[in-house]
Structure formats: C-alpha cells, structure tokens
C-alpha cells in the first residue's frame, strides 16, 4: 500500500463501508436460507466472497480511482444477476408472496446503495492518495483535499443531474404531490452540501461511515420518498430516475466520507 498517511484512517473507513455491504449480503443469504432457497443463498454468499477478494485490490489500486470503480463493477454485476434470477424464479414458481418479494427487492437495493457508498469512498480516497504522492511536501495536504473535493463535486453533479431530471419529468406530469418532494431536494441541494462541508473540520470520534450516514439520514428518507412517489404514480421513467439518483447520492456521500479521513491530515 505504499505508506501513504491516508492508509491507516483510510483502511478503517474502507473496513467500515465493506462491513456495511457485507451485512446486506448476509441479510439476503439469511432470508434465502430461511426460505430454503439454497441456490440463491449460495449466490449471495458467492457475491460477498467475490467482493471480499476484490476489496484488497480495490484499496491498493484506489489511487487510480478509475481502476477502483471498475473493480466494483464486477461486484455490481453479481447483484444484478442475482436479482434477475430471483425475479425469474419468483414468477416461474408463482410464489404469490408480496411481502417476500418486496422485502427482497429492498435487500437488493441495499446492496446496490452500499456498493455505491463503497465506490464513492474508495474513489475519493484514492484520488487524494494519488494527489498526496504527486504533490510537493508543502502543498501535499491541500492537493489531497482538493483532489478529494473534486471527486465529491463530480459525484454531486451526477446526483444533481438525476434529481433535476426527475423534477422536470414530475413537473410535466403536473402531480404536485411528487414535485413537492423533488423540488424540496432541489431547493436545498446546495445548502445541504454546504452543511456537510461545514461539518468536515469538526472533530468526531465516529468512523466516517457512521458519521456520513448520520448526517445524511434525512436526505436518504427524501430519496426513498422519490422512489415511492414514482411507484405510486406508476411512472417507470420516474422510478428509473429515482433509482439512478439514489445510487448517485450514495456515491456522493461515500466520496464525502473520504473528506472526513482526508481532513485528518491537518
């Protein structure tokens, strides 16, 4: 890992995010075990172990953040395949158990969100590590902070793009109930980001994962609301945009969590 000052705190953060994702896999495996769907239980376990073996590589190569992101793509494929296989199985066996189906869809979403969190964190941390190595001694910390912030900004704009699009599509539908939620996210978009930026210099004993999850918990609720409004409005376009916005939001907040680690450099 090359002895970067970010390695120690970075590794702790990485472990926290990885543990979070692993828990989502375990939950899926547990439900399938209870349902005696061994093939699916094994798929969840295999996806987790695939992730575990990629983790080390992801972290050591994180200074090249493009590589880090491409590493997580393989893990993403696992969950997409598992979800498709489950839907097929559910339909072919005519299971007719709404609670089970909805619960599984929730669990699959959790994996995707937590993977995005992981990717965001590792990407921004990697960018900062690369900048730290490249820069001269005097401006190394500033370079690392700037590099981390650039990753956060990029992720933020991606997240903004989907929410804006959602808001525009919802406005065309003329459904005030939906636009109330999306326009609220838009209205406070930059303020919410600023609030997080102001939080960065504060000392905290929490690990970066818990800290970012706590600080962005209400936003998570708003995004979940976007999804449910789209579902009730029976708009596939809005549902897709809500899903993309939530993934982008998680990448953004994962990247932001790396700023907490980078700020420890001083």
């Amino acid at each position: 890992m090359g002895g970067s000052p970010l390695d120690g705190p970075g590794k702790k953060g990485e472990e926290a995010f990885a543990e979070f994702l692993s828990k989502a896999y375990s939950e899926i495996a547990r439900v399938f075990k209870d349902r005696k769907m061994e093939q699916f239980e094994n798929m969840a376990k295999a996806a987790d172990s695939n992730f575990q073996s990629l983790r080390q590589a992801a972290f050591s190569r994180a200074k090249d953040c493009k590589s880090a992101s491409s590493l997580t793509e393989a893990v993403e494929d696992d969950v997409v395949s598992m979800q498709s296989a489950f839907i097929k199985e559910y339909q072919s066996k005519e299971m007719d158990d709404d609670g089970f189906f909805t619960g599984m869809m929730y669990d699959f979403r959790q994996v995707k969100y937590r993977l995005a969190l992981y990717r965001g964190f590792i990407g921004a941390l990697g960018a900062a590590r690369a900048a730290l190595e490249k820069a001269g001694k005097e401006d190394a910390v500033k370079a690392a902070k700037d590099a981390g912030m650039r990753e956060v900004e990029a992720a933020k704009e991606e997240y903004r793009k989907y929410v804006t699009e959602y808001d525009q599509v919802a406005s065309k539908l003329g459904n005030g109930d939906i636009t109330d939620v999306s326009s609220t996210i838009m209205r406070y978009f930059d303020l919410s980001h600023e609030a997080l930026v102001l939080e960065v210099p504060n000392k905290s004993s929490e690990n970066p994962r818990d800290r970012i999850l706590r600080l962005t918990g209400s936003k998570e609720g708003e995004l979940s609301n976007l999804r449910s409004k789209a579902y009730h409005a029976k708009s596939v376009e809005l549902e897709k945009l809500a899903a993309a916005a939530t993934i982008a939001f998680n990448t953004y907040r994962g990247a932001f969590a790396a700023l907490f680690v980078i700020s420890e450099l001083g």
Binding site: R187, L191, E194, A195, L198
Partner: peptide, 13 residues
C-alpha cells in the same frame, strides 16, 4: 463566520 452565513441563508430559504 461561515456557519453564521450558512444559517442565515438556510433560514431565508
């Protein structure tokens, strides 16, 4: 200072 400025703008919004 940044916090005060932020709070003011948040309140206005």
């Amino acid at each position: 200072k940044a916090q005060m400025d932020f709070s003011k703008r948040y309140m206005e919004t």
